[in-house]
């Protein structure tokens, strides 16, 4: 096989993957009409995606807020503008750091677990068993996962924003010497509603992309443990890529 043929084949594979992911997402969305019937499965996924992600989100968000406050606080202090640190931390956390870092954590923890679980079900013929029982896997498996991330990623993002801002406040007080009052006054007076909803739009889009990528990769895992491993890795890589690409375009649209 020559270089052109190999490159062409890779491009076709990638396009097939993108198309398949979009089809998987839309099939999952189609079954939203049966949300009530599958509420127990959705709730179970929400617990896994959301509640069980809280400890790691706390740690990452706290340290992100602290690092942002430390770096910007020192730079602002040179120009005697350290009083504006609250504005900078809040804007950067809510617009960018909160949604993106939360999505990356969820893609790593939840997306890869989804891909591995569905991949294992695929190779052990559980997906085929659903098909022969006339149970559409996109209804039984994909829809609850899409719903769960669609709800829990924005919730986790709001949570991460709050923790990040609090972490930033602690560093602003202890390291930079800005009072809590000044810091939170900066946060409250300059944080626009647009900063919040842009972050929420990002979280929703990331929720769709992480769940769709993970479900598609899992449902199309090839036979054997190697196939499941490959599906998990691909899910992680493609979810990260989609997060960064969507992040750019959403930022470009809103700002």
């Amino acid at each position: 096989m020559d270089l052109f043929e190999k490159t062409g084949s890779k491009i076709l594979d990638s396009l097939e993957g993108v198309g398949g992911t979009i089809v998987t997402l839309f099939r999952g969305l189609y079954w939203f009409k049966q949300t009530i019937k599958y509420r127990a499965l959705i709730f179970e996924q929400m617990l896994f995606c959301g509640v069980e992600s809280i400890p790691v989100v706390i740690v990452i968000a706290l340290f992100t807020g602290m690092v942002v406050a430390l770096q910007t606080g020192q730079a602002l202090a040179r120009f005697e503008l350290e009083g504006t640190i609250g504005n900078v931390v809040a804007a950067s956390i809510c617009r960018e750091m909160g949604p993106v870092f939360t999505a990356i954590i969820v893609a790593g923890r939840v997306g890869s677990a989804m891909a591995a679980q569905l991949g294992t079900m695929k190779v052990s013929e559980e997906i085929d068993a659903l098909e022969v029982m006339s149970i559409d896997p996109t209804r039984y498996l994909v829809m609850p996962r899409v719903w769960a991330l669609l709800i829990m990623l924005p919730v986790l993002t709001i949570f991460a924003d709050l923790i990040g801002i609090i972490g930033g406040g602690v560093i602003a007080r202890l390291q930079i010497g800005v009072s809590y009052y000044t810091y939170f006054d900066g946060v409250m007076s300059n944080l626009e509603i647009k900063d919040i909803y842009t972050g929420m739009v990002k979280a929703v889009v990331f929720g769709f992309s992480i769940s769709a990528v993970a479900c598609y990769q899992g449902l199309h895992a090839r036979a054997g443990a190697q196939g499941v491993g490959r599906a998990t890795t691909r899910s992680l890589v493609f979810a990260f890529l989609s997060i960064l690409i969507f992040d750019y375009f959403i930022s470009a649209i809103f700002y």
Binding site: M121, E125, E126, V132
Partner: peptide
């Protein structure tokens, strides 16, 4: 397929 019953090589039970 609602009229089919299929037993696979592996038990294929949802774990």
């Amino acid at each position: 397929r609602k009229g089919y019953g299929v037993v696979f090589q592996s038990p294929a039970l949802l774990q």
